[in-house]
Computed example of a mutant assay.
Amino acid sequence: MPKKERKRLQVVISEEQDALLTRTAYELSSPERLISKSEVVRLAIEKIARELGESEQLDELRTLLDDENVSDDA
């Protein structure tokens, strides 16, 4: 069975955001299964997309992004 093709995305994050990713991965992990930071990011993407489909929280998320001074260097 061929491997599932995946796209790679590179983003720049702050040390604080990296620490949050690390802590979240640790908290989601169990002795049976370690969760990677990449898996946390994929989970977050799915969760945000689902929540946006269920409600109108776009303005709240935009405000959060503006407050964090998030920029995309693409």
Rank of each mutant, 00 (worst) to 15 (best):
Y26C: 02
E5I: 08
L61C: 06
L61I: 14
A44P: 02
L52Y: 04
E51T: 03
A74C: 01
S38E: 08
L65T: 07
A25L: 03
A49W: 06
E54K: 10
A44W: 08
T63S: 07
V11G: 01
L9G: 06
R8C: 00
K37W: 04
D72Q: 00
S38A: 14
T63V: 07
V12C: 09
T24R: 15
K7C: 05
E15C: 07
D72A: 09
K4F: 07
L61G: 06
V70Q: 05
I48A: 06
K7Y: 06
L9E: 13
D18G: 05
L34D: 01
S14E: 02
S29W: 04
L43S: 07
G53S: 08
E46K: 14
K3S: 13
I35S: 04
L64I: 09
P2C: 05
A74P: 03
L65A: 10
D66N: 08
D72W: 14
R23C: 01
N69W: 04
S14N: 01
E54R: 12
E16N: 08
L64V: 09
T63D: 12
V11C: 11
R6M: 08
V41K: 02
S38P: 00
L58I: 12
S55C: 00
R8T: 06
S55K: 10
D59W: 03
S71A: 14
L43N: 12
D18A: 12
I35H: 02
E46S: 15
T63C: 04
A74D: 12
S29I: 00
E27D: 13
D67V: 01
D59N: 09
R6K: 13
S36G: 05
L43H: 07
V41M: 12
D66T: 05
T24G: 01
K37I: 02
R42S: 11
D67H: 11
D73W: 08
L52E: 13
Y26F: 15
L21T: 04
P2Q: 11
T63H: 13
S38I: 00
E56N: 15
E51R: 13
S71L: 08
V40W: 02
A49T: 09
I48G: 02
Y26L: 12
P2N: 12
Q17Y: 13
L43K: 12
E56L: 01
E68Y: 10
Y26E: 15
L64G: 12
S29T: 01
A19F: 05
E56G: 09
A49N: 07
S30E: 03
